[in-house]
Design a protein around this nucleic acid. Sequence first.
DNA 1: GTCTATACCGCGATAGAC
DNA 2: GTCTATCGCGGTATAGAC
Lengths: 196, 196
Amino acid sequence: MGQSDTRVRIQGAAATLFRRHGYSATGLKRIATEAEAPFGSIYHFFPGGKQQLAEDMIRTSGSEYGRMVLALLDSVADPAESLVHAFDAAADDLAAADYADACPIGTVALEVASSNEVLRAATAEVFEEWVDAAAQWFGHWVAEPAAARSLACSMVMMLEGAFMLSRASRDPEPLRVAGRSMAELLRTAVTRADKG
Amino acid sequence: MGQSDTRVRIQGAAATLFRRHGYSATGLKRIATEAEAPFGSIYHFFPGGKQQLAEDMIRTSGSEYGRMVLALLDSVADPAESLVHAFDAAADDLAAADYADACPIGTVALEVASSNEVLRAATAEVFEEWVDAAAQWFGHWVAEPAAARSLACSMVMMLEGAFMLSRASRDPEPLRVAGRSMAELLRTAVTRADKG
DNA sequence: GTCTATACCGCGATAGAC
DNA sequence: GTCTATCGCGGTATAGAC
């Protein structure tokens, strides 16, 4: 049996709703409805209520999303081409989802940054996890650790900003531009290392 | 007299609260309290209620913020140095505001993207306004219009993403990294134009 | 026109029947 | 353990006194 079915459905519904509409706009009653679970089950499986549900989502979906992006980057040999490919894939996915499902934690991160210390810290840890993993990936082509980390940080920021503009304008173009800019930054860093 | 004092105070309180906590988490009662205005005055000056107040804020604060950033960019002669300086200034401001006051419309933009068409369109128009203005600025150094526009779009995305990471981690460093990456992108574009 | 009181609803959370 | 009924609160919005 392992994990309860109901628990998993609640987590899934919470992840979708928090991702699309954010923390404040998502009600526990709606989560229960979409999960086809009785309301009381939320507090049975998540005694900490809404905050616990959100923290669970931030860490779980956050780690999962990070692994997904890194796997996408590893799927193409040339790193600059890989960046373009990954951002183009994100653009296609976002458009296919009618601009609803972008970064799983981005909206929540901004909402809670100045009002909920527990959730703020959770988002910060996820972002750091992503930057660490991406810095390792960039490290394959950029020897200088500081340069690799800077590229990694820029990639995460560019992705989050591109999601914001693409969702707002209902246009995949910002995400495509972001991928090309990241490829450009990588090429510059590699060229510099060759010469320096 | 011109504009009513009360109306201006309501707009100011709304701008601050929407910026810090987003759309859903901001209540009209709290806006009235912080504006030191009677609750009924909100509906007197903004018959459209919360949505009208938010749309007004998005367009007003959005345009104002765009002009402010462009003025900051124009205050330093060398464009690459100017980008570094502007992002560093944003980093200092954000830290000084205890990581509360970043982009006036970023949080709201993500919240409403899939749930409120009027507000989504308003944020999209503001972002486009910013990209247009920034593209004109980059055009001073990059002749190719498509390249200037790509840089402009990347700058806005990088700024939004940097605000997200800096607020989440309560650390100005992401904003500083973003500025250096944008300077790098600009130098690459300028160099390319010189050679091509 | 300014402001207060209130209607009405949905929220997060809980108690307790089964 | 699963589920329902309800509590108290705060939300948006409005009606009407002054």
